[in-house]
């Protein structure tokens, strides 16, 4: 599945000119003031105003006797609210993407946590059935319960945000 909303993907992002400012500052706000973003803001305002106007028009029709218009009078403000919500969500996504672009690159020596994040939630990988090899062939008989628990803890550590129920082991 294509996930262009993936926060880690900023391949076509000009990260060089965008470093050196923390999110939440005026600099971070400036990036939401590019021509493309201004067009989006304007589209949001135009849509909201026209949807509310259409709602008002339906109210006037409803009071004139068209009872079905009461339903439409409710729907248009909902549409307007939806437009605001989508706009706010896109802004939030863009700012998060910037914050991740600004973040110092992870130490390549440290293996990154093996989670695939989709949006803001960490996606947990599908449990896989793997035939287990005998734990140890040495003469030291390991406490298998303890080993299993340690493996569970290390899995939890490697998958931050995962719930215990997702443990595949």
């Amino acid at each position: 599945m294509v996930t262009p909303n993936h926060p880690l993907r900023h391949g076509n992002y000009d990260t060089v000119s965008e470093t050196g400012s923390a999110p939440g500052t005026l600099d971070a706000m400036k990036r939401l003031w590019t021509p493309a973003w201004i067009a989006r803001h304007v589209a949001m305002v135009v849509l909201v105003v026209s949807f509310l106007g259409l709602g008002w028009w339906q109210i006037s029709r409803a009071t004139a006797g068209n009872s079905l218009s009461w339903g439409y009078a409710v729907e248009w403000p909902i549409f307007a609210g939806f437009v605001v919500y989508v706009w706010w969500r896109e802004v939030k996504l863009a700012r998060r993407r910037e914050a991740e672009a600004d973040a110092p690159p992870a130490d390549p020596a440290v293996e990154p946590a093996p989670t695939v994040t989709t949006g803001s939630r960490p996606a947990v990988r599908r449990p896989v059935r793997v035939s287990r090899v005998p734990a140890s062939t040495g003469d030291v008989v390991e406490d298998t319960d303890l080993a299993a628990y340690n493996h569970y803890l290390s899995w939890l550590n490697a998958n931050p945000g995962a719930r215990p129920g997702d443990y595949p082991g």
Partner: peptide
């Protein structure tokens, strides 16, 4: 079809 398509970059994590 989009939803049923295999999810990219989700390789199974070996347990053992």
């Amino acid at each position: 079809a989009w939803v049923a398509a295999p999810q990219e970059a989700r390789t199974p994590e070996p347990v053992a």
